[in-house]
Design a protein around this nucleic acid. Structure first.
Length: 486
RNA sequence: GGCCCCAUCGUCUAUCGGUUAGGACGCCACCCUUUCAAGGUGGAGAGACGGGUUCGAUUCCCGUUGGGGCUACCA
């Protein structure tokens, strides 16, 4: 179902933590919807909670969106900057009688609430509490007495056709006369959101379904303010493996965490998209453009999805082998530096070599960090032999040393350093020694990389080059002999 | 407690009344193979329960159960 007109959507996080994966997914769905149908995607920072909002969090949101490549149109809106309009909207509501002043002291409300709680009955604000004797209102106002402003919830039922849930209805009697302006004259969330969404011309509000119960209040506000009610789409939550709302206890929940684990943004996006959305067929691995092409509100899920880190890893591996080298390279430089494998300067000096190495390693890695870890032996001067590799492939030090010496000699005698030449030579060596190829390749792999697992052995020989390969064979033979005498 | 949302393999999902209920992750086996991945083939694995409606329900309706969200002068 394509929208009748280009939609204006927004992503409206509050900067009270880092950009959460759930938030990132909401941003993605909004972005997909806006971009797909030629609309606008706006960003609004809901920083009205001055106590909890921090610049650090705001920057984390900017960074996270930038890393994911989710761009937005127009200027960022900071909700806190719209305070005057929020108050003006409250005044309008007061003027039409849609809202009223409530001088009930906060302490009194708390007492009533505790009371109701103790008796096991639900507490709902009673409008009678705010009723004043004639002349009282004017007197208190003149005296400057602090008071809250409450919205007068009319009788009836408030409903809407949710783009993912269908019709949702709330009897208004279940909604109390909620506060829209605090006694310190700051607006409350629902008012600020509606005021801003109207001002921003938002036509579709797409957000987490934890906002479903706010929606009737907001619809009432739109109407009282004389504005067109936008469409709503409440996307399901993301849960942890235990079925609870995703939180710190479940491990990494900030997109920054994944960025720093060597995840590719395209894989993160792809994985997130599939949590709560399905293209309708069996296709899973998609580029951003493919997602854009296939995105539709119809594919949005109603059910909460569980975040499965294993599938994220798999997805990343898929993107690692699917993306072009050019797309991957920008992501590997910082990781090699962070993990201390090499410096960007050193890498740029040998860029072609480096690209070839990454191309070799990426198939068997699931994250960029994996690649960097596997790349260590190709940068080290001295190879470190993995204990398991030694005990498995160099079980008999003498035999291993003999084979490696013979291998070294054979390789050194080669006129050309290419895979076919080397393979022919080493296979015939194996035949001469009456052993299988593996008996040569495996010990050789340990000598060259120190590990039992690596890219194809001839690829390793080539990427290392003749001199370094032969030097490593020498080193291995020396190591084995000293090990025997020791 | 009240209100609202949700319910297909362990997980993500396909199915829009008629299927041997399909795919993916993960798991197991085999193949490929110089190792590890990748890839290929196969396997185990699901309609929460109870009522309706219908010739026929995973699919539509109701209830139960279970899970989740909200319930502030937080956002």
């Amino acid at each position: 179902m394509a929208p009748a007109a280009p939609p204006r959507v927004r992503f409206a996080p509050s900067p009270t933590g880092f950009l959460h994966v759930g938030g990132a997914r909401t941003a993605l769905f909004n972005w997909l919807y806006a971009r797909k149908y030629g609309g606008q995607m706006l960003l609004r920072i809901e920083d009205t909670d001055r106590q909890r909002s921090t610049d650090e969090s705001t920057n984390a949101i900017f960074d996270g969106l930038a890393w994911l490549g989710l761009d937005y149109d127009e200027d960022v809106v900071f909700q806190g900057a719209n305070l005057e309009r929020h108050r003006a909207d409250v005044e309008r509501l007061l003027a039409t009688g849609a809202a009223y002043r409530d001088f009930t002291p906060h302490a009194e409300l708390e007492r009533l609430r505790a009371d109701a709680d103790a008796r096991g009955v639900p507490f709902r604000f009673d409008p009678k509490l705010a009723e004043l004797a004639p002349g009282e209102l004017e007197r208190r106002l003149a005296a400057g007495e602090p008071h809250a402003v409450r919205f007068r919830v009319p009788d009836g039922v408030t409903d809407w056709i949710d783009a993912v849930h269908g019709r949702i209805a709330f009897p208004n009697k279940d909604i109390e006369d909620f506060v829209i302006l605090r006694s310190d004259r700051t607006p409350v969330y629902n008012l600020a959101v509606v005021s801003d969404d109207i001002a921003m011309g938002i036509t579709m509000v797409m957000r987490g379904d934890d906002h479903i119960s706010n929606t009737p209040k907001q619809i009432l506000l739109y109407r009282a303010l004389g504005a067109t009610v936008p469409q709503f789409a409440h996307v399901p939550m993301i849960h942890g493996t235990d079925g609870k709302k995703l939180s710190k206890r479940h491990g990494a929940t900030a997109v920054g965490d994944y960025q720093h684990q060597g995840l590719l943004p395209s894989a993160m996006l792809n994985f997130l998209a599939l949590l709560g959305w399905s293209p309708g067929d069996d296709v899973e691995v998609m580029t951003r453009l493919e997602m854009l092409d296939r995105f539709s509100l119809d594919g949005l899920q109603k059910k909460a999805a569980v975040f499965d880190p294993q599938k994220l890893d798999w997805m990343n591996g898929q993107h690692l082998s699917m993306l072009s080298l050019d797309e991957i390279m920008p992501h590997v430089y910082p990781v090699f530096e962070r993990l201390g494998v090499s410096t960007p300067e050193e890498l740029r000096e040998r860029e072609e070599w480096f690209r070839a190495l990454i191309d070799l390693l990426r198939v068997r890695a699931r994250t960029v960090d994996d690649i960097a870890r596997q790349a260590v032996p190709y940068f080290a001067d001295e190879v470190e032999y993995d204990a398991d590799a030694v005990s498995k492939q160099w079980r008999d030090a003498n035999t291993a040393a003999e084979i490696l010496s013979a291998t070294r000699e054979r390789l050194a005698s080669l006129a050309a350093w290419d895979a076919t030449t080397m393979e022919t030579a080493l296979r015939s060596l194996a035949e001469e020694l009456s052993i299988s190829g593996g008996k040569i390749f495996q010990p050789l792999r340990v000598a060259l990389t120190g590990l039992t697992a690596s890219p194809g052995i001839f690829d390793v020989l080539i990427i290392l080059g003749r001199d370094r390969s032969l030097a490593r064979l020498d080193q291995a033979v020396r190591w084995l002999k000293s090990d025997v005498t020791a």
